[in-house]
């Protein structure tokens, strides 16, 4: 239980998707002009992460790994990890489509607010990045490494933490940018340039949390 909680908190504050790994930067910069849309995109990313990371975890441990149960049963134990990139991206693209259809069918109001962001998420590096980091962390020893992901509950905690960390970062930046509209920024620095420097300063603030260990 302790490990589960530590993984969750670490992935929000210490291993923040934006501030320490720069994942999902493109949509982070493009969609952070107003707080309202930023919240929508943040929730959509968290939602998709929560589904794809555990699914990719099961695929990695059961199908791709040579000691996986399904791999043993169907193929007699062959190392298929070289297929990971293609399989993960196909799962992400497929699940994004599925989520879009389900949301449209059962909750038109949610679809109206999330709808435009969902197709964007298929090529958001935060989703693919979370799956690839999860793949690395399976190999770590859970007894010594707090970052290790040893079971499906761990992968869920990691996905939820990463999503919330991303949401926190995008909402914070959007709020700052809304206020910044009233300031006098030098002309060539306006827009993108000043946004980068703002994100850099936010990342510096988050660096203070890097010693956090639960």
């Amino acid at each position: 239980m302790e490990h589960f909680f530590s993984l969750f908190v670490r992935s929000i504050f210490v291993d923040n998707m934006i501030f320490s790994f720069f994942l999902g930067m493109c949509s982070y910069l493009a969609v952070s002009k107003t707080v309202k849309t930023a919240v929508g995109l943040g929730i959509a990313v968290t939602f998709v992460l929560l589904i794809t990371v555990p699914v990719d975890y099961l695929l990695q441990t059961q199908v791709l790994d040579e000691n996986g149960a399904l791999n043993q049963a169907l193929l007699g134990g062959q190392d298929l990890t070289f297929l990971a990139f293609i399989l993960f991206i196909a799962v992400i693209a497929g699940i994004v489509q599925l989520v879009e259809m389900v949301v449209e069918r059962f909750s038109p109001s949610l679809y109206a607010s999330l709808g435009i962001f969902l197709p964007l998420i298929a090529v958001n590096c935060a989703i693919m990045g979370a799956s690839l980091f999860m793949q690395q962390r399976i190999l770590m020893d859970p007894a010594t490494e707090t970052k290790a992901i040893g079971c499906i509950a761990d992968s869920l905690a990691y996905a939820l933490g990463s999503g919330i960390g991303w949401l926190l970062a995008i909402v914070g930046l959007a709020a700052i940018r809304e206020k910044m509209a009233y300031t006098d920024v030098p002309k060539p620095l306006q827009g993108l340039g000043i946004t980068f420097i703002t994100v850099g300063l936010m990342a510096m603030a988050f660096m203070c949390l890097s010693g956090l260990d639960l």
Binding site: S20, F22, P186, L192, G193, F196, I197, G200, L201, M204
Partner: peptide, 22 residues
């Protein structure tokens, strides 16, 4: 070597590039 400075440096590169082209 920290992530934060990468963002600030890239911001400065964009600044210089825009000022030059303008």
């Amino acid at each position: 070597t920290m992530p934060a400075m990468a963002l600030i440096l890239l911001g400065c590169v964009i600044w210089a590039h825009r000022a030059y082209n303008e």
